[in-house]
């Protein structure tokens, strides 16, 4: 299986690479359009600032490539946020895969950034095969996707219930870091890779 990790100078590429290697998959890390388009699965990671990241994607014309990919794509953390319509972080337009979904900042009545392990309320979905409801995964973020129709998992922080994972057609997205969420996270990545 050919797995491509999109490299755009704003990803924690290495930890995703290591997580895949622990599952016996050796991914390619690339910004090459042909390599990405021909991969069986694509992972779109992200750590950093939304505006800077969108600029990097635009430089490499990945902002037009990614929304048109046909194979399963998994956005992680900032990757998920960039798949939305707009982000408050840097007031920047996103890839628009998740239509009309806008990323907003946590209110000031909670500690921001939100860092740590939090529980998932899971909907029925192939990504959650063998994952118990209320499993804990690792989050690091200051902005979030509000509860929306694409949600396949939700999480509560302070008084806010938000979207912690979502799906639209071939696009999956996780706000938390499955590559840093212990055995539960590894299982989720495995479930993503196993889909046909």
């Amino acid at each position: 299986m050919k797995v491509a990790i999109i490299n755009y100078e704003a990803g924690n590429v290495k930890s995703v690479q290591f997580a895949l290697q622990r599952l016996g998959v050796n991914p390619i890390i690339t910004d090459n359009h042909d390599e990405i388009s021909s991969a069986d699965k694509v992972i779109f990671p992200g750590v950093g600032q939304a505006k800077y990241a969108m600029e990097q994607l635009a430089k490499k014309q990945l902002d037009t490539l990614i929304p048109n990919l046909k194979q399963p794509v998994l956005g992680v953390c900032l990757g998920m946020q960039l798949m939305c319509e707009h982000s408050e972080e840097g007031n920047v337009g996103g890839l628009g895969i998740f239509k009309d979904v806008n990323v907003v900042k946590f209110s000031s009545d909670v500690k921001v950034p939100c860092i740590g392990w939090n529980a998932l309320e899971l909907e029925s979905h192939f990504l959650w095969k063998d994952i118990p409801d209320e499993s804990y995964v690792y989050f690091v973020h200051s902005y979030y996707v509000p509860d929306c129709t694409f949600a396949i998992a939700k999480t509560v922080y302070g008084s806010t219930k938000y979207t912690s994972a979502m799906q639209f057609e071939n696009f999956s997205a996780m706000q938390f870091h499955p590559e840093k969420s212990g055995d539960i996270g590894s299982k989720m990545i495995e479930n993503f890779l196993k889909q046909i």
Binding site: N12, K14, F18, Q21, V47, E179, K180
Partner: peptide, 29 residues
């Protein structure tokens, strides 16, 4: 970073932005 599947913070000797990039590239979160 290659042996653990939990978050990992690295410190020591960071004096410029490029040092941070190198650490993140090596697998620090």
């Amino acid at each position: 970073a290659s042996v653990i599947n939990i978050p990992f913070t690295v410190g020591g000797g960071i004096s410029e932005v490029e040092d941070v990039k190198n650490l993140l590239d090596a697998g620090a979160d």
